[in-house]
């Protein structure tokens, strides 16, 4: 692994490239990471299977866990497409146009990143709860949002609103407006320009953002925990089901539910690595242009 010795470079070894330094730093990092980041993952998988594969499948098909899986998938199916559309609209607004308040709008788009999910959950209660702003109105028309599925969707939307936009904005900023302007000048409609010029340029970034968004929606705990009311068999998403099983001392069951989410997380990381290569292709097309 050492660089071949060359006369002119002999004195100029980079900092930390010495053999001893390298070994010590690498050793410390690998041991710490093994204990801190890898061990929890390994534990989840071994614990889920700790009573054999039969018990694992029995747990997995348990009606409560099966329902939680279904509800989690449904939430992702509702929230991710909405936030893809929002991400596209938001990125299109702040990267293709100059207008007063643009910087403020970008800050607002990123705001949910900085807010604790618990705060988001509590805040939603003051809009749709019985004591909230719209509480009396909703009650009058007998519409239930709080402690029901709509609240889970809304809170998840809050938490993951910036995920797609954040991937798109820097990319579309670099890509500029030349191609869109050319298309429009040649007579393409706004919609055609968007679908045939903009979208192909950012498709991998959209997929990338959507995958990160999906992982977060499926795993969101704090915000959903507040707004769902944790009603067994009605508003228990997978992360909430994990907590219920943990409190019921059903540790293997809790780890089975955890394993499903850990598998989603691992898949997300693998796709992220793959897509980062495709993303480089997106950027390469930019470099070719400029």
């Amino acid at each position: 692994m050492r660089a071949p010795p060359s006369q002119s470079k002999k004195m100029l070894t980079p900092v930390g490239a010495g053999r001893a330094t390298r070994r010590i730093l690498l050793g410390v990092v690998l041991v710490l990471t093994g204990f801190f980041l890898a061990a929890p993952l390994i534990l989840i998988f071994t614990s889920a299977f700790s009573q054999g594969i039969g018990v694992f499948f029995k747990n997995l098909t348990d009606p409560a866990i099966a329902y939680a899986i279904w509800l989690t998938l449904l939430t992702a199916l509702v929230v991710v497409p909405v936030n893809i559309l929002f991400g596209l609209a938001a990125a299109w607004t702040v990267t293709k146009f100059e207008f007063p308040g643009r910087t403020l709008l970008i800050a607002l788009i990123e705001l949910p990143y900085s807010i604790s999910p618990i705060v988001a959950g509590v805040a939603y209660l003051f809009v749709y709860g019985t004591q909230g702003l719209f509480g009396p109105l909703l009650e009058q028309f007998d519409i239930k949002i709080m402690f029901a599925l709509p609240a889970i969707f809304l809170a998840s939307m809050f938490v993951t609103a910036p995920f797609v936009a954040r991937e798109l904005i820097p990319l579309m900023q670099v890509q500029g407006t030349d191609e869109e302007e050319a298309a429009v000048t040649l007579g393409a409609s706004g919609f055609a320009t968007f679908v045939r010029v903009t979208l192909p340029n950012v498709k991998w970034a959209v997929v990338y953002g959507a995958i990160l968004c999906n992982a977060r929606v499926m795993g969101e705990f704090g915000a959903v925990s507040v707004v769902s009311g944790n009603i067994r068999g009605v508003t228990t998403t997978l992360p909430l089901q994990i907590e219920l099983l943990f409190h019921d001392y059903n540790i293997v069951g809790a780890f089975t539910a955890s394993m499903v989410l850990a598998a989603v997380a691992l898949l997300t990381i693998v796709l992220k690595v793959v897509l980062e290569r495709f993303g480089e292709a997106d950027l390469a097309s930019v470099n070719r242009l400029h």
Partner: peptide, 16 residues
């Protein structure tokens, strides 16, 4: 592995 804490749901991390 550095991405694990971001990808892994907090409840799962807490349990583990």
């Amino acid at each position: 592995l550095v991405d694990v804490p971001f990808a892994l749901p907090t409840a799962v991390a807490g349990l583990a």
